[in-house]
Simulated assay, not measured.
Amino acid sequence: MPISHDQAHHPEIAACRWFPGDATSIRDVRRFITTHLNGCPRSDAAALLASELATNALHHTLSSNWTTGFHVTIEHTPTQHARVTVHDAGSWNNTPHLTQPGPDTEHGRGLYLVDTIADHWGTHTDTTGRKTWATLHCHSPAPHNL
């Protein structure tokens, strides 16, 4: 269920990291998420969401080259949610949108998965690029390994 970026409840940044615009970064994004959300029972789901958002950044934005890359931020909200944000370089003609993939469709499941698994998700574009984020309820608000 998408909500606006402004509806988030003043999150606290737990970790932030830049990743090169390369397919090998997806594995590193998953590891980054599971390491920093170690105490969260939904850390695997958060890693899946982050990898889908990062994959979209690589396939649909200007972040798809090694030097531009993208940032991933993990935040904790006062309502015990973990929010994962992928900040990419944006796109000239591409706005993230939810599609209903067909059973034989090879692509187009990324945001469908995000919408199905995340408690909330959304996207915001400005002059610095695009931020696409997803939140999950996490019973352990204290970040691990900061």
Rank of each mutant, 00 (worst) to 15 (best):
M1E: 15
P2Q: 06
P2A: 09
P2L: 02
H9N: 08
P11T: 05
I13P: 15
I13Y: 01
A14R: 07
A14G: 09
A14D: 14
W18S: 07
W18V: 08
F19W: 10
G21D: 14
G21V: 08
G21S: 11
D22A: 05
D22V: 09
A23M: 11
A23V: 10
A23P: 03
S25F: 11
I26Q: 03
R27F: 08
D28W: 00
V29W: 04
V29N: 08
V29S: 05
R30Y: 08
R31D: 10
R31V: 12
I33W: 06
I33H: 07
T34Q: 12
N38I: 01
G39P: 01
C40W: 02
R42K: 14
S43Q: 13
S43Y: 05
D44V: 07
D44P: 08
D44R: 11
D44Q: 14
A45N: 06
A45L: 12
A45W: 07
A47S: 13
L48Q: 11
A50Y: 07
A50S: 15
A50R: 09
E52M: 06
A54R: 07
A54D: 07
T55H: 05
N56S: 06
N56M: 09
L58V: 06
H59N: 08
H59Y: 12
T61A: 08
T61H: 03
L62G: 11
S64T: 02
W66H: 13
W66R: 15
T67F: 11
T67A: 12
T67Y: 04
H71L: 08
V72K: 00
T73F: 04
T73W: 04
E75K: 07
E75Q: 15
T77Q: 10
T77A: 05
P78E: 15
P78Q: 15
T79V: 02
T79M: 10
Q80P: 02
H81R: 14
A82S: 11
A82M: 12
R83D: 01
V84P: 14
T85Y: 00
D88Q: 10
D88C: 05
G90H: 00
G90S: 01
S91G: 15
S91D: 12
W92Q: 11
W92S: 12
N93M: 07
N94T: 06
T95F: 00
T95S: 03
H97C: 10
T99P: 01
P101L: 03
P101S: 07
G102K: 14
P103Q: 06
D104W: 09
H107M: 04
R109Q: 06
R109P: 00
R109K: 05
L111G: 04
L111V: 01
Y112V: 03
Y112P: 02
L113F: 13
V114L: 01
T116L: 11
I117H: 05
I117W: 04
A118R: 04
A118T: 08
D119R: 07
D119E: 12
W121C: 06
G122R: 08
G122F: 08
T123P: 10
T125S: 13
D126G: 13
T127P: 02
T128C: 01
T128W: 04
G129P: 05
R130V: 04
T132N: 09
T132I: 13
T135P: 00
L136D: 14
C138V: 03
H139L: 03
S140L: 01
A142C: 01
A142Q: 13
P143T: 02
N145G: 11
N145A: 12
N145K: 08
